[in-house]
């Protein structure tokens, strides 16, 4: 059983979001980087749990990023996983990233590919579905639960207005979200062993991205809060009705 877990580097959830170069580049100065929470808490931790249940399982991590992604991938290895692969390219768009990961997956012969449901920076939720299409594999999107019995998968995925319980056979691609697993903190043994786990760097395959970023914009600041005295809550309803015209 071989699992490939896709790892992305994102700014910390509390990072200040600003742009430079005439609003065309994310201002990276002073930004703390983390493993994309969906990749870490749900995809990676669930893969580790599967390995704990079946110690013969091999977990590989893959990331598409330049050398500055390595601290993140080492941090992921400290949580678990046997080795990591870094595709040495900046992730131009979802299709470029998915194409690189699909190439790694073709070579590695994985039974299971896990992604987080989306990254918290570009929020596209696109890479998992694209990998599945490129490899012509089934895709369980937005999974909240995932179990494996032999090569039979039972999973729960979120759909409009509820959830579906589904069954499928390996190999397949799964995008993971809350419910799959619980966040873990790496222990000292994990941190020490992560230093010596193999981290292979491969060059990207030639793929043209389908989209490019033309620029960014930050939303206009709020006009300022209007406080309503606690002894007259009805005033809030009046304002929402007459001023905001929302009720």
């Amino acid at each position: 059983m071989k699992i490939l877990v896709c790892i992305s580097k994102t700014p910390d959830t509390t990072a200040k979001i600003a742009f430079t170069d005439n609003n065309t580049k994310f201002a990276e100065n002073g930004v703390q980087w983390i493993i994309n929470p969906y990749d870490e808490w749900y995809a990676l931790v669930r893969a580790i749990e599967l390995k704990e249940k079946d110690p013969g399982t091999v977990i590989h991590l893959v990331t598409v990023g330049e050398a500055d992604t390595e601290p993140i991938i080492r941090k992921a290895l400290a949580l678990g996983g046997d080795e990591a692969i870094r595709v040495n390219a900046s992730g131009a768009d979802s299709f470029f990233i998915a194409s690189q990961i699909a190439e790694i997956a073709r070579q590695g012969g994985y039974d299971l590919i896990f992604t987080g449901k989306e990254t918290i920076d570009y929020n596209s939720a696109a890479v998992g579905g694209m990998i599945a299409e490129l490899l012509q594999l089934p895709y369980i999107s937005l999974a909240v639960k995932f179990d494996l019995e032999g090569s039979t998968v039972t999973a729960t995925r979120e759909i409009e207005g509820g959830e579906e319980i589904v069954q499928a056979s390996l190999p397949l691609v799964v995008s993971c979200q809350k419910g799959m697993a619980e966040q873990r903190i790496p222990n000292m043994k994990g941190i020490m062993s992560a230093r010596t786990k193999p981290l292979k760097v491969v060059e990207p395959v030639a793929v043209d991205p389908l989209t490019t970023i033309a620029g960014f914009e930050t939303p206009p600041p709020k006009a300022g809060i209007k406080m309503i005295p606690a002894d007259n809550p009805a005033e809030l309803i009046r304002l929402l009705h007459e001023e905001a015209k929302l009720i």
Binding site: A125, A126, G129, M130, Y139, S141, L210, T211
Partner: peptide, 17 residues
Amino acid sequence: KAIAPRVSARLKAGLVA
């Protein structure tokens, strides 16, 4: 979210999600 990325990869059509 489940379908559009697959269609994008299938048709090599750029997606904005």
